[in-house]
Every structure is written in C-alpha cells, then in structure tokens.
Design a protein around this nucleic acid. Structure first.
Lengths: 209, 209, 209, 209
DNA sequence: CATGAATGAGCGTTCATTCAT
DNA sequence: GATGAATGAACGCTCATTCAT
C-alpha cells in the first residue's frame, strides 16, 4: 500500500514538473514556438512520457492556464475577506491585480495576452468549468462591494455589475497596452504611473460628488 | 498608354485581393496557423505570386495591419476635426472606436488582440514607423482635447497624456474582455451596454464636480 | 543489457547506411543537386529520421568527407611507417594517392573536386578541426622525409615544406585533369601513364644530379 | 540596310552585356547561387530577354566559360610566338598561366574550379568544339617546344606530350590547392612562392644533368 | 510505466522557365 | 523583339504524435 502511495506521489510530482517547465517555456516563447521536445528536455523526461500525463500540447497549455488562474482567484478572494470600506476594497483589488501582473508576469501573459488560438475549443468542458465558476463568483463579490458602497452612500447609484466589469476591463486594458513594444514607444511612461492613475480615475468616477 | 494604366490597376487589384484573403484567414486562424498556401488558394493565385507582391508572410501580415490601422486613424482624425466641446469629443472618440470594432471586427482583432509574436521584430522599420507616428499623433490630439477641457474649466486638472492613455486602455480592455468565449459567459451582458457605461464613467471621472 | 547494445549497434548501422547513401548521391550529383528527400528514400528512412542523425545537410556532407579523409589519411600514415628510403617513400605516397583515387573514386571526387561552396563555412569548427590537424600532420611527415633525403645527401637542398606541397598539388592536378570529359579528349592518354610519369619527373627534380 | 545593321549591333551588344554580368555573378556566387533574376537586373534587361539570347542558364554559363578560355588561349599562343629558348618558353608559360590566374580570377575559377555539374552535358557540341580544338593545338605547341629542347640537347629525352600534360596538371593543381580555405590553413604560405617553386622544380626535372 | 526512435505531413521560401501582351 | 507577371515544383527543415520495446 505504501508503495502505491509513493507511486502516486511520484506521479503527481512528475505532472507538476511538467507543468512548471511548460509554463516557463510557453511564457517565454508562446504556444506555437514552444515544442514538446523542449518541455520534455527541461523536465528531464522523455517526450513520450508527456503524452502519458497530457493528451496533447493543447491540454497541457490549458492546465498551465488553470494553475495560474487559481493563484489569481485566491488572491482576489482574500481581498474580499479583508473587510475594508468599499472604495478601499476596489483600490486594493486593482493593486492585487497589478501585483499579480508583476509577480506572475508569466501566468499573466499566458492567461490574458497570449494568443490561445483554438486551444480551448476542443477540450473537455470540465477542465474549464471550475475556473469559470470562480470567475463568476469573483464578479459577484465585486458587484456586492459596489452595491454596499451605494447603500452606504459613498458611491453614486450605478449598476454594480457593470461597474465591476468596467473595472476589470479597464485594468486589464491598461496592462495590455504595455505588452506591445510598439505601444510602449507611443506611451512613453511606465506601467505603474498609468495603472494607479486609472484606478484613481475610476474610483473618482464612482464616488458621490 | 491605356494599357499600362490598366495593368497597374490590375496589379493593385490583385494586391488588394491578396490582402483581403490574408486578412480573413489571419483573423480566423491567427498568424501562425495561416499558411501561405491557403492565402494563395483563396486568392486563386499561385504561392509564388504572393511573393511578387510581398516579401514574406510577415510583411503581408503587417500590410494587413496597416490597412486596418489606416481606416481607424482616419476615423479618429475626422473626429478631432469635428470641433465639438472636449467632453463630447471624448465620447465621440469612444463611439468611433466601438463603431470600428463593430464594422471591422476582423481588423480590430488582428490589430489589438491577436498575438503578433515576433512578427514585427525583423521587419524594416519604415514599414512600421508611419503607423507609429500616426499613433503618437492621435494621442497628442487626444491629450490636447483634455488640455482644452481643463483650460475651459470643465475638466478637473489632470495629466492630459495619462487621461488619454487611460481612456485608450480602458476602452480597449472592455472590448478585449468580449473576445474570449469564456469571458462572455462570465460577463453575461452585451458589449454595447458595457462600453457606453464605461465611457460615461470615464467622462464623469474627468468632469469637474 | 544486451538490448541496449543491440540498439546501439542498430543506430550505428543506420547512421552508416545514411552516410553510404549520401555519399553515392553527393558524388553522383554534387552537394546542391542532392536532396535530403533522395537520401532518405534511398536509405529507406523518413526525412525526419535523417535529422535525428545529422543536424543539417551540410553536417551530413562533412561527415561523408570525414569518412573518406580518414581512409586516405590512414593509408598515408601507413606509408610513412614503412621505413623506406626517402625517394621510395615519396614514390609510394604517389602510388597510394593514385590507388585511393582508383579504389575510392567517389570519396576522391567529393574530397578534392566537388565544389563545396560554403558548406563548411557555418559548421562548428570541431567538425573540421580533426581533419585539418591530420592534414597538417601528414604534411609535416612528408616534409620530414624530404628533410631526411637532403640530410642523407640524396636530395638537392630544397625547402622540404614547399617540396611536399608541390608534390601534393601536382599529383592532385594530374588526377583533376581527368575529371573533365573535355580534358580527357584533349589529353588522349590514360591516367596511369601520366601520373607515374609525373611522379618520376618530380622525384628526378628532387634527386641530386 | 543600315537599320538592320544597327539592330544586329545592338543585339550583339546586348548579348555581350548579358555575358559580362553573368560572369561577374557566376564567379562571385557560383552557378547554383546565381539567379537569372540577378543577371537580368544587372544587365538592365528583363528576365524573358535572357531567354531570347540563351536557351537556358546552363548555356549562358558555358558561353561565359568560352569567353574566358579564349583569353587564356590567346595569351598562351602569344607566348609560343615569342621565339625564346625552350626552357624559357616553358617558364614563361607557367608565368602566363599564373598571370591569368591573378588577372582573371573570375574566369579562372569558373573554368577550372567551379562545380559545373552536368552543365555541359546536354549542350550542342558546336559550343564546345572550337575550344577543344584550341586546347589540343596549345598542347601540340607545348609538346613541340619540349621536343625542340630535347633536340637541342638541353632537355633529357622525355615524352614531350607527357611533359606538357604534367606541366599543365601540376600548375593547375598548385593553384587549385589555394582555392579551399581549409587547404590554405594547412599550406601556410602564399601562392606565388609555391607556384614559382614548382615551376623551377619542373624545369629542373626536364633539364639535362 | 517510461522510453526515444521514427514518422510524415506541413511549412515558408526560391527560382528557372513560360507566355500573353 | 522585349517584357515581366505568373507559375509550380522543389527544397531544407520542423515537430506533434505514435508505438515497439
């Protein structure tokens, strides 16, 4: 029995190793430019073994994405549990998002910026559903905070869901701008300045005059 | 004499046909997944002919992007020439951007959402410079409008450049959200509602209380 | 255990098979006109497999050359070990060279007559260095023999290095003449007559009067 | 009539221009690496026009070779007309050959060193016959000089034809050695030293003791 | 369970040659 | 006669996937 357990542990460790190596490479070179050979080599496994753990390159990619999403969602949920006033929660959420962008640039790019192509199209739904649920939940929590702010009289009476989505979109959009070298040349300032500026502008827009 | 003219017309038409076919395919499948064979086939030309008009797949891609950018920039510049009050210019700009997103979904995706990878890296600078310059110019015009608004006393005293960038990033970010099937499931409302909402929020944030 | 050995044997055999097929084709058609497809087909392997054994067409070509050079160098070194008087060593060397030309016409052509173009230009130096060293060594041995002949008083006092090089160049040049169909028509005699004649002439030039 | 003459002149000039451009390119890049496009461009003609003057790339190549041969043969024949003593004629011939190598490196390489592949195989005989005849004639003249030297008692009694061929082969072989970068590394001295050394050695071999 | 050798379809690009004008 | 746009067959090389061991 102990043998079987050890084997299971080893299998999990191996799986994890593959994911880690794949993530590093997918980030550095994108989905297409990363080869299964490279992943296998970096993980010190044979190429065939990769196919024991993942049915295809696509599935491996989605798995990597899921791991990254989990980290982000966890951080976001923590924020909601902090019990701060609504405007501060929102600012904090922006900071958390930006922090994640800084700390996990690799995941961030894979999740939001890299071309996924038809990667997720022909994958089994269950691989995705859990993340989807989490996303919906986060949005509800966010909308709840806005709702609170309105009820407490510090926010203007807006549609809370829309506000939450606008916030997410705007934040993402700013970070996205900086992904392209050419855009950076046009922008001519650094991310931090712009992201905080946008946060403030957004919150100012929410606050009652 | 008329002969040469007709030939030139035909050449331009053929060039345009290639661009059209390439755009459709690049949009549908991304840069990497689109092959020169497919483009040639769709354009009913031989593969070799493509290389008479474009030196490489990359150059063709950038040409497609440029054509799309040109349309967008033209629309934006028109807006600046409309001689409206600053807050209305900005709203109009948002609408123009959204309109472009609706009318030229294919260009929009290619320009802003598709992974370009290293496409533009090894291309002659001059292919890109013109677009870059236009982008910078648009941003300056935008910042000028904000500046006017401040001087006229209708906007709070903000950094005009930052405001312009935040606007661009936020608008882009909203539209970007809707690109992913999965996001759309989370969002549960249509683009139009959210984009106009965000526009209003943004302008409200700019206006003096 | 024996399994691994057998596998290694098989791999080596396959590698050798590739080299053999490549040699035949390179000889028959030259470097450029020979395609990897043809080599693969002749070796009854897939094209991809070729690239498991050789990183590029160039590397395969150089490998073929190396194998041919090895045979020649081995024969030459044997000759030096024969412990003959200087003039007889030199004659023997000429014969060995000519013998190699007869026995390994394919290698001979590839080594000395075929245009290699830029084949060796972008190859890692170490692939070539070994052969270069052998070549230099052979030349030194040759010069040593001439030096001995001079010291023993049977050769005129010449520059031993130059003599060795002149010998190599002259021998090669004669054989080279016969490579072109057109030259053969002009010459009107067979290789053997001319090569031995030249050998004698050369040695006569070295010998003290 | 004058019109037709002018046309003929123009046609010849055009033909010559093609040959000149082709030679420069064939030398610089070899047969395969030179494209008809480049030749056409350099000659400021359309690619189609090339095919009005030459049936194929191969035929153009052979034509280039013929022009180079003509120059060499003319120089050689001049030498025979100089009326020098036999040993000096031979030395002079070596010098002429080496001079041609220096002055017309491009032709020299094309004529003797570049891979011709099957270039000349399927070409009409008449393109080649004239050169062949000249080659045979030169060889006869050379053999005649040796014969004279023998009759005058300054050369040992050798086979004059063989001597001539050995001379040609040896000289060619020396120059050939220097064509390969790798050989040059082995050789470690310059052409001039070695070619004159070989000439002297050869003549010494001919001279009566 | 793990391996890694083998596959083969596919890619972007080139270029000698043709042919309608 | 001259043009130059168009062709299409090749080419060297890659890489996700398979499968015998």
């Amino acid at each position: 029995m102990g043998i079987e357990e050890r084997r299971n542990r080893e299998k999990l460790a191996r799986r994890e190793a593959i994911i880690v190596c794949a993530r590093e490479l997918f980030l550095a070179k994108g989905f297409n430019a990363t080869t299964m050979d490279e992943i296998a080599q970096r993980a010190e496994l044979s190429k065939g073994t990769l196919y024991l753990y993942f049915n295809s390159k696509e599935e491996l990619y989605v798995t990597v994405m899921s791991e990254g999403l989990k980290i982000l969602f966890d951080r976001i949920e923590e924020t909601f549990n902090l019990d701060l006033p609504p405007d501060q929660v929102i600012r904090k959420l922006g900071e958390v998002y930006y922090r994640y962008y800084l700390d996990h640039r690799d995941y961030f790019r894979i999740l939001f910026f890299l071309e996924h192509g038809d990667v997720s199209k022909q994958l089994p739904r269950e691989l995705i559903q859990a993340n989807l649920d989490k996303g919906i939940r986060c949005l509800q929590l966010f909308a709840g905070v806005v709702q609170n702010g309105i009820e407490e009289g510090i926010f203007s009476p807006v549609d809370p869901r829309k506000a939450a989505l606008a916030f997410w979109g705007a934040t993402n959009g700013i970070l996205f701008l900086f992904e392209e070298e050419l855009n950076r040349e046009i922008i001519g300032m650094d991310v931090e300045q712009l992201i905080y500026y946008t946060l403030d502008l957004f919150i100012k827009g929410l606050l009652k005059k």
